[in-house]
Amino acid sequence: MSLGPAEVAKIAHLARLAILDEDAPAYARNLSAILELVDQMNAVDTTGVAPMAHPLDMAQRLRPDEVSESNQRAHFQAIAPQTEAGLYLVPKVIE
């Protein structure tokens, strides 16, 4: 499977990445190479092999349902560009 510039542009948009048009062919080549590797892996017969969700062969540790965090709003909001009435302010997004 190989990607063209239009697919590269779409993937970049989905990831909110700004790329230069002139770089698109190079990205297309590199991404296509990755997909070719996936194709090779797909060709292997994996009948009876359970899909792996994580490289570590361990299970998720569970935490007790107890409040351990205190209010550190002032601390966090010190690095926010803009706040008001305890809210983070962002450019308006309307549905």
Partner: peptide, 23 residues
């Protein structure tokens, strides 16, 4: 639950904005 799914911040309803949002 008393706390969030992946953090120990409280889920109590009606708190001051962003006072229960941890790192």
């Amino acid at each position: 639950t008393k706390t969030k799914i992946f953090s120990g911040a409280s889920t109590a309803y009606g708190a001051e904005p962003n006072s229960q949002a941890c790192a």
